[in-house]
Write a protein that binds this DNA or RNA. Structure first.
Lengths: 236, 236
DNA sequence: ACATCAAAGTACGATATCGTACGGTTGACG
DNA sequence: CGTCAACCGTACGATATCGTACTTTGATGT
């Protein structure tokens, strides 16, 4: 049994913000599915099968060199979508996308989606605005990696997760965070303890509880805010 | 006196690779101009006035935080264009773009350009492919900043400049490179001396001469190559 | 209750990079 | 042809982060 998807009930901002006349075209092709942590939704240089519009939860976009070195480049949540390559007329990218925090997501077959954006210009235009915001996020991540401490970058990451997951309790291990940030696992532990001393977070085994968002923003300092402002400007 | 611009003579790959039928629409609006080092072609959060398709030369895209910390996020040369925000339906971005190495460029008024891409779908589609390549470049820059040494990142940067400037002698001061990479000026000096010892480059006051590209690629290691491969795949 | 194991805390020497600063060199310009 | 500012080489202590590895803790299954 499938339930039809009602635009006003969708918890993905990008879809909810679509013109109803455009959403109508998408609607028959949409399915709501569950994405569990660890699921790889896009593999490097393999055709993208499905495009996802996440509801609260987090999907990471991970960049990798030819030698296999990897780190997270950007994150996607209910403000956005996966499969940006398709908006650019391509069916794949060199990046990996994987589910970081469980979410439900509105899914659509990539080929169907591609056909629809070719056909419906206003749909394409709306989603391309998000591609711009995501590019700004990538540029800021680059800057953060080059200029800020692990603690600042970690605070930034937690804030971005909080924005997208819509809850205070994030089920993330230090190991996982270290892979995302491209630093040592021990470095994450230390940074978290330091933020715990500030009262910004409370850690438990296998998870992090956000206690004081303001303190977290102070810990992130300059590292947080530009892509968020751009999102509001462009799609808010 | 203005000369009309002939597609086959353009040294910008993106424009030269356009379908002639699409180029024809752009042609009446194009002007070839000179861009001198230091010229700022896009200011953060200010409307983009002109879109440039550079001929050999280099334009940097610089990301900045609210606090003013900045570093280069990406570079554009004769393989690409400035003003990607316009392809995404927007008239500005939070980034700065500035001329790094003098070039001639094909210029078009941003509003005219915006009108043309709205009107000519194949034109828009062609250029959007470049937006994807640029996003890959941003993601890789993020990875490089997080994981690689100054020497590797510098080697990467010089290789990317070489690809775009089409000459071996790059008029760049250590000071400038340090601003771009977001590191100390002294760090650049040291890294350059180390690469000079490898025979990869020869430095002179105010410039760097690339002597052995293979050695430079070895110095860059994993840091170089992914966006370049993506460009060839998508637009080659 | 106990065993087991992944996760987290801690430690320590090594390395990359920083901030700062001083002095030497060189090319541009008067 | 001399001057000078910009550019480059170098140095040194401080700091961030690394690689590695050992220990402790807590959740889970039996």
């Amino acid at each position: 049994m499938t339930y039809s998807i009602v635009q006003s009930e969708i918890r993905n901002r990008l879809l909810r913000g679509l013109l109803p006349s455009e959403f109508e075209r998408l609607q028959p092709h949409l399915n709501r599915i569950s994405l569990e942590p660890g699921i790889v939704v896009e593999k490097p240089d393999r055709p993208i099968a499905t495009v996802y519009f996440p509801e609260p939860g987090v999907i990471s976009v991970v960049a990798r060199t030819l030698g296999g070195t990897q780190a997270e480049a950007g994150i996607v949540g209910p403000e956005g979508m996966t499969g940006l390559a398709i908006l650019h007329g391509l069916d794949r990218s060199p990046n990996t996308s994987l589910v970081q925090m469980a979410c439900r997501a509105i899914a659509i077959d990539a080929r169907v989606f591609r056909g629809l954006i070719e056909e419906r210009r206003p749909l394409h235009d709306h989603l391309l605005r998000y591609a711009q915001v995501f590019a700004v996020q990538l540029a800021q991540a680059s800057l953060c990696n080059g200029r800020f401490t692990i603690e600042q970058r970690l605070a930034r990451w937690l804030l971005m997760c909080h924005d997208r997951a819509d809850r205070e309790d994030l089920p993330l291990t230090h190991e996982l965070l270290s892979l995302m940030l491209g630093v040592r696992r021990a470095g994450v532990t230390t940074a978290l303890r330091s933020m715990e001393a500030l009262g910004a977070v409370k850690t438990r085994r296998g998870g992090i509880n956000l206690r004081d968002r303001d303190a977290l923003e102070r810990a992130a300092g300059e590292a947080y805010g530009v892509p968020e402002a751009e999102y509001e400007r462009v799609l808010g």
